[in-house]
Protein backbone atom coordinates (compact mmCIF):
# COMPACT_ATOMS: atom_id res chain seq x y z
CA UNK A 1 0.00 0.00 0.00
CA UNK A 2 1.33 3.39 -0.95
CA UNK A 3 1.34 6.38 1.39
CA UNK A 4 -2.05 7.52 2.56
CA UNK A 5 -3.11 11.12 2.14
CA UNK A 6 -5.98 13.10 3.61
CA UNK A 7 -8.49 14.50 1.15
CA UNK A 8 -11.83 16.24 1.71
CA UNK A 9 -14.76 15.22 -0.49
CA UNK A 10 -17.42 17.92 -0.20
CA UNK A 11 -15.68 19.01 2.97
CA UNK A 12 -15.61 15.58 4.61
CA UNK A 13 -12.24 14.07 5.44
CA UNK A 14 -11.11 10.70 4.09
CA UNK A 15 -7.76 8.93 4.21
CA UNK A 16 -6.97 7.44 0.78
CA UNK A 17 -3.92 5.91 -0.97
CA UNK A 18 -1.83 8.69 -2.44
CA UNK A 19 -1.32 7.10 -5.85
CA UNK A 20 -5.03 7.15 -6.72
CA UNK A 21 -6.86 9.54 -9.00
CA UNK A 22 -9.59 11.69 -7.46
CA UNK A 23 -12.15 9.41 -9.08
CA UNK A 24 -10.76 6.13 -7.77
CA UNK A 25 -10.15 7.75 -4.38
CA UNK A 26 -13.83 8.69 -4.15
CA UNK A 27 -14.73 5.09 -4.87
CA UNK A 28 -12.18 3.95 -2.31
CA UNK A 29 -13.94 6.23 0.17
CA UNK A 30 -17.22 4.48 -0.60
CA UNK A 31 -18.90 6.72 -3.17
CA UNK A 32 -20.94 5.08 -5.93
CA UNK A 33 -20.67 7.48 -8.83
CA UNK A 34 -23.32 8.12 -11.45
CA UNK A 35 -23.00 11.83 -12.11
CA UNK A 36 -19.45 13.02 -12.55
CA UNK A 37 -18.16 9.82 -14.12
CA UNK A 38 -18.15 8.89 -17.80
CA UNK A 39 -15.32 7.45 -19.85
CA UNK A 40 -12.84 7.42 -16.95
CA UNK A 41 -9.98 8.01 -19.39
CA UNK A 42 -10.00 11.74 -20.07
CA UNK A 43 -12.10 11.99 -23.22
CA UNK A 44 -15.70 12.74 -22.23
CA UNK A 45 -15.51 15.65 -19.78
CA UNK A 46 -18.08 14.18 -17.37
CA UNK A 47 -15.88 14.49 -14.29
CA UNK A 48 -15.19 18.22 -14.18
CA UNK A 49 -13.92 18.91 -10.67
CA UNK A 50 -12.96 21.94 -8.66
CA UNK A 51 -10.43 21.77 -5.84
CA UNK A 52 -8.26 23.77 -3.52
CA UNK A 53 -5.26 22.66 -1.50
CA UNK A 54 -5.48 23.44 2.20
CA UNK A 55 -3.51 26.58 2.98
CA UNK A 56 -3.56 27.84 -0.62
CA UNK A 57 -6.32 30.13 -1.79
CA UNK A 58 -6.02 29.18 -5.48
CA UNK A 59 -9.08 27.44 -6.93
CA UNK A 60 -8.08 24.79 -9.44
CA UNK A 61 -10.02 22.73 -11.95
CA UNK A 62 -9.33 19.24 -13.27
CA UNK A 63 -10.83 16.02 -14.59
CA UNK A 64 -11.29 13.67 -11.62
CA UNK A 65 -10.21 10.65 -13.70
CA UNK A 66 -6.93 12.25 -14.74
CA UNK A 67 -5.82 13.98 -11.54
CA UNK A 68 -3.88 12.29 -8.77
CA UNK A 69 -4.96 13.10 -5.20
CA UNK A 70 -2.79 15.33 -3.06
CA UNK A 71 -2.66 15.74 0.68
CA UNK A 72 -5.03 18.44 1.92
CA UNK A 73 -7.10 18.54 -1.26
CA UNK A 74 -10.63 19.92 -0.89
CA UNK A 75 -12.68 18.44 -3.73
CA UNK A 76 -16.10 19.18 -5.21
CA UNK A 77 -17.23 17.62 -8.44
CA UNK A 78 -19.44 19.56 -10.83
CA UNK A 79 -22.24 17.09 -11.64
CA UNK A 80 -23.78 19.26 -14.31
CA UNK A 81 -23.21 22.74 -15.65
CA UNK A 82 -25.92 24.52 -17.65
CA UNK A 83 -23.80 25.29 -20.70
CA UNK A 84 -25.90 27.32 -23.13
CA UNK A 85 -26.01 25.50 -26.45
CA UNK A 86 -27.88 27.29 -29.21
CA UNK A 87 -29.61 25.17 -31.83
CA UNK A 88 -29.21 25.62 -35.58
CA UNK A 89 -29.43 23.66 -38.78
CA UNK A 90 -25.94 22.90 -40.01
CA UNK A 91 -27.22 22.80 -43.59
CA UNK A 92 -28.76 26.25 -43.41
CA UNK A 93 -25.96 28.27 -41.81
CA UNK A 94 -22.93 29.73 -43.57
CA UNK A 95 -19.35 29.99 -42.31
CA UNK A 96 -19.39 33.76 -41.93
CA UNK A 97 -18.49 35.92 -38.95
CA UNK A 98 -22.19 36.82 -38.84
CA UNK A 99 -23.18 33.36 -37.62
CA UNK A 100 -21.14 33.66 -34.42
CA UNK A 101 -22.72 37.07 -33.77
CA UNK A 102 -26.15 35.56 -34.18
CA UNK A 103 -25.70 32.39 -32.19
CA UNK A 104 -23.17 33.34 -29.52
CA UNK A 105 -23.19 37.17 -29.26
CA UNK A 106 -21.91 37.01 -25.68
CA UNK A 107 -18.40 36.17 -26.93
CA UNK A 108 -18.07 39.87 -27.73
CA UNK A 109 -18.50 40.61 -24.03
CA UNK A 110 -15.21 38.86 -23.22
CA UNK A 111 -13.25 41.07 -20.82
CA UNK A 112 -9.95 39.34 -21.47
CA UNK A 113 -9.49 38.07 -17.92
CA UNK A 114 -8.13 34.72 -19.16
CA UNK A 115 -9.91 32.79 -16.39
CA UNK A 116 -11.14 30.31 -19.04
CA UNK A 117 -7.61 29.46 -20.12
CA UNK A 118 -6.47 29.05 -16.53
CA UNK A 119 -9.42 26.73 -15.86
CA UNK A 120 -8.92 24.51 -18.92
CA UNK A 121 -8.34 20.88 -17.93
CA UNK A 122 -6.76 20.23 -21.34
CA UNK A 123 -4.36 23.20 -21.14
CA UNK A 124 -5.92 24.81 -24.19
CA UNK A 125 -5.64 28.52 -24.89
CA UNK A 126 -9.37 29.06 -24.50
CA UNK A 127 -9.38 32.84 -24.53
CA UNK A 128 -7.40 32.76 -27.75
CA UNK A 129 -9.89 30.49 -29.50
CA UNK A 130 -12.73 32.75 -28.39
CA UNK A 131 -10.80 35.67 -29.87
CA UNK A 132 -10.50 33.76 -33.16
CA UNK A 133 -14.24 33.09 -33.07
CA UNK A 134 -14.95 36.82 -32.54
CA UNK A 135 -12.96 37.60 -35.68
CA UNK A 136 -14.56 34.82 -37.72
CA UNK A 137 -11.23 32.99 -37.99
CA UNK A 138 -12.90 29.62 -37.75
CA UNK A 139 -9.97 27.44 -38.84
CA UNK A 140 -7.75 28.87 -36.14
CA UNK A 141 -10.57 28.58 -33.62
CA UNK A 142 -11.15 24.96 -34.63
CA UNK A 143 -7.47 24.06 -34.38
CA UNK A 144 -6.99 25.76 -31.03
CA UNK A 145 -10.13 24.20 -29.55
CA UNK A 146 -9.78 20.76 -31.14
CA UNK A 147 -8.74 18.89 -27.99
CA UNK A 148 -11.67 20.29 -25.96
CA UNK A 149 -13.58 17.63 -24.00
CA UNK A 150 -16.40 20.04 -23.09
CA UNK A 151 -16.00 19.60 -19.34
CA UNK A 152 -17.24 23.16 -18.95
CA UNK A 153 -14.67 24.35 -16.40
CA UNK A 154 -13.99 27.40 -18.58
CA UNK A 155 -17.65 28.40 -18.58
CA UNK A 156 -17.91 27.94 -14.82
CA UNK A 157 -15.24 30.60 -14.33
CA UNK A 158 -16.24 33.05 -17.07
CA UNK A 159 -17.50 36.47 -15.89
CA UNK A 160 -18.95 37.12 -19.37
CA UNK A 161 -21.01 33.93 -19.16
CA UNK A 162 -19.69 32.49 -22.40
CA UNK A 163 -20.28 28.82 -23.24
CA UNK A 164 -16.83 28.29 -24.68
CA UNK A 165 -17.09 24.58 -25.63
CA UNK A 166 -20.17 25.32 -27.72
CA UNK A 167 -18.40 28.12 -29.56
CA UNK A 168 -15.47 25.84 -30.39
CA UNK A 169 -17.81 23.10 -31.51
CA UNK A 170 -19.68 25.42 -33.87
CA UNK A 171 -16.39 26.60 -35.36
CA UNK A 172 -15.18 23.04 -35.87
CA UNK A 173 -18.41 21.94 -37.53
CA UNK A 174 -18.22 24.93 -39.87
CA UNK A 175 -14.63 24.07 -40.75
CA UNK A 176 -15.33 20.36 -41.20
CA UNK A 177 -18.34 20.92 -43.40
CA UNK A 178 -17.68 24.16 -45.28
CA UNK A 179 -14.12 25.40 -45.00
CA UNK A 180 -11.81 22.34 -45.23
CA UNK A 181 -11.24 21.35 -48.88
CA UNK A 182 -13.56 18.74 -50.32
CA UNK A 183 -12.29 15.21 -50.77
CA UNK A 184 -12.55 14.33 -54.45
CA UNK A 185 -11.49 10.68 -54.07
CA UNK A 186 -14.23 10.19 -51.48
CA UNK A 187 -16.93 11.72 -53.65
CA UNK A 188 -15.79 9.61 -56.60
CA UNK A 189 -15.84 6.36 -54.61
CA UNK A 190 -19.30 7.02 -53.16
CA UNK A 191 -20.55 7.66 -56.70
CA UNK A 192 -18.93 4.46 -58.05
CA UNK A 193 -20.56 2.40 -55.33
CA UNK A 194 -23.91 4.09 -55.92
CA UNK A 195 -23.70 3.19 -59.61
CA UNK A 196 -23.05 -0.44 -58.71
CA UNK A 197 -19.40 -0.62 -59.82
CA UNK A 198 -18.57 -3.08 -57.02
CA UNK A 199 -21.80 -5.06 -56.86
CA UNK A 200 -20.60 -8.06 -58.88
CA UNK A 201 -17.19 -8.20 -57.21
CA UNK A 202 -18.60 -8.09 -53.70
CA UNK A 203 -21.19 -10.76 -54.48
CA UNK A 204 -18.44 -12.97 -55.89
CA UNK A 205 -16.16 -12.67 -52.90
CA UNK A 206 -19.08 -13.34 -50.56
CA UNK A 207 -19.73 -16.64 -52.33
CA UNK A 208 -16.14 -17.93 -52.26
CA UNK A 209 -15.44 -21.03 -50.17
CA UNK A 210 -13.40 -20.47 -46.99
CA UNK A 211 -10.36 -22.34 -48.32
CA UNK A 212 -10.14 -19.96 -51.25
CA UNK A 213 -10.65 -16.95 -48.96
CA UNK A 214 -7.80 -18.15 -46.74
CA UNK A 215 -5.51 -18.42 -49.73
CA UNK A 216 -6.50 -14.95 -50.95
CA UNK A 217 -6.04 -13.46 -47.48
CA UNK A 218 -2.72 -15.08 -46.66
CA UNK A 219 -1.15 -14.11 -49.98
CA UNK A 220 -2.61 -10.61 -50.34
CA UNK A 221 -0.22 -7.81 -51.10
CA UNK A 222 0.23 -5.29 -48.30
CA UNK A 223 0.80 -1.64 -49.22
CA UNK A 224 4.11 -0.35 -47.92
Amino acid sequence: MSNMVNVYFYGKKYSVPGDMTIMTAMEYAGYTLSRGCGCRHGFCGACATIYRIKGDNTLKTCLACQKQVEDGMYVASIPFFPTDKRTYSINDIKPTQQIMMELYPEIYSCIGCNACTKACTQDLNVMQYIAYAQRGEFEKCAEESFDCVACGCCSVRCPAEISHPMVGLLARRLVGKYIAPETEHLKARVEEIRKGAYDDMIEKIMQKPITEMKELYNTREIEK
Binding site: I90, V175, G176, K177, A180, P181, L186, K187, I193
Partner: peptide, 20 residues
Amino acid sequence: PDAIKWLNELGVMFDKDEDG
Protein backbone atom coordinates in the same frame (compact mmCIF):
# COMPACT_ATOMS: atom_id res chain seq x y z
CA PRO B 1 -17.29 5.65 -47.98
CA ASP B 2 -20.80 7.06 -47.67
CA ALA B 3 -20.49 6.94 -43.88
CA ILE B 4 -17.34 9.08 -44.07
CA LYS B 5 -19.03 11.49 -46.46
CA TRP B 6 -22.05 11.76 -44.16
CA LEU B 7 -19.83 12.50 -41.17
CA ASN B 8 -17.80 15.01 -43.13
CA GLU B 9 -21.00 16.78 -44.16
CA LEU B 10 -22.14 16.91 -40.55
CA GLY B 11 -18.91 18.78 -39.85
CA VAL B 12 -16.44 16.13 -38.68
CA MET B 13 -12.92 17.46 -39.19
CA PHE B 14 -10.99 14.59 -40.74
CA ASP B 15 -7.23 14.88 -41.15
CA LYS B 16 -6.77 16.06 -44.74
CA ASP B 17 -3.94 17.48 -46.80
CA GLU B 18 -4.16 20.86 -48.57
CA ASP B 19 -5.88 19.34 -51.58
CA GLY B 20 -8.55 17.69 -49.47
